[in-house]
């Protein structure tokens, strides 16, 4: 990728121009997310930089939007609702998903393709269609507008991610390890928890993070299935953006970005650990 010494002037120009173009694209990717962070400290209720902020005058900055976010029940209730829904949905998705991924990774599974297609389908079907179908069906069975309706819906939306990540870890799993455990006298359950589980753990945790973030970010399904009392954080942001846009939304967004950064770092650590455990060289 480095420029050879014999490069012509045109090649040189293109080389640097290309880097500038890529830099601009990276800027396009990251700037909108970064820019809301300083904006969320705005002392005024504007969505742009005030002259004081541009002069780096401390008077232009304040924590008042964060104060509002962490004290106003309009934001606190949705935050806690989100935190009550996402872990339960994640637990369901991960426990059922891990078992199924182990089943799917075995040889001689009949109708494997069909089963896989069904299990992955919640990721492929557009959310609005899932939401519509669930709204119709859950109204029939009395789950519409209930906490459990939302939890079940979010669990099923998270399942494809668990299946994909756990299956990917199982591809590198050495089956002779379970046979070795069995030959040493361990039963299937003991083998699973003592040998297989620790090795596929990175995939399971990665799947859990995906399932968690799916539920935590999900807004379309909850808009249709949730009762007003089950309003989640994304729902509140959606209403906020559509109806009365308040700068507190930027504080909420910054909090969510921080959560994403933590999750991203965790995933990266897990990926490296998984590759080390499976004997692959870290890239």
């Amino acid at each position: 990728m480095s420029l050879p010494v014999y490069a012509t002037a045109g090649q040189r120009l293109w080389h640097y121009a290309f880097r500038v173009i890529c830099g601009l694209i990276f800027f396009f990717l990251i700037a909108p997310i970064i820019i809301i962070i300083p904006l969320s400290f705005n002392a005024q209720d504007f969505f742009t930089f005030s002259p004081e902020m541009l002069r780096l005058d401390p008077a232009g900055y304040s924590l008042k939007h964060y104060h509002d976010f962490f004290t106003n029940p309009d934001w606190q209730l949705p935050l806690w609702n989100s935190l009550a829904i996402a872990p339960v949905a994640t637990l369901i998705a991960v426990s059922l998903g891990t078992l199924a991924a182990i089943g799917l990774s075995q040889s001689h599974v009949p109708f494997k393709g069909t089963i896989m297609a069904i299990l992955i389908s919640p990721m492929i079907v557009p959310l609005i269609i899932s939401a519509a179908g669930m709204y119709f069906f859950y109204s029939r069975v009395g789950l519409q507008g209930t906490y459990w309706g939302v939890v079940l819906a979010h669990a099923v939306l998270g399942i494809p991610f668990v299946i994909i990540t756990v299956t990917a870890t199982l591809v590198g799993f050495d089956r002779s390890l379970t046979r070795a455990a069995a030959s040493l006298g361990a039963g299937p359950v003991r083998t699973f928890f003592m040998v297989q589980m620790p090795l596929i753990m990175p995939g399971v945790v990665a799947g859990a993070l995906f399932a968690f973030i799916t539920s935590f970010d999900e807004v379309v399904v909850v808009l249709f299935l949730g009762a007003p009392g089950d309003k989640t954080l994304p729902w509140q942001m959606f209403t906020g953006l559509r109806e009365q846009i308040s700068p507190t939304i930027l504080a909420a967004a910054t909090v969510l970005v921080s959560i994403s950064v933590v999750l991203l770092v965790t995933l990266e650590v897990l990926r490296r650990r998984s590759e080390r455990l499976r004997g692959m060289s870290p890239t």
Binding site: I33, D217, V219, M237, L250, A253, L256, V257
Partner: peptide, 11 residues
Amino acid sequence: WTSLLVRTSAW
């Protein structure tokens, strides 16, 4: 990894 709502609010 950033919430869809965050990116939409940013825009």
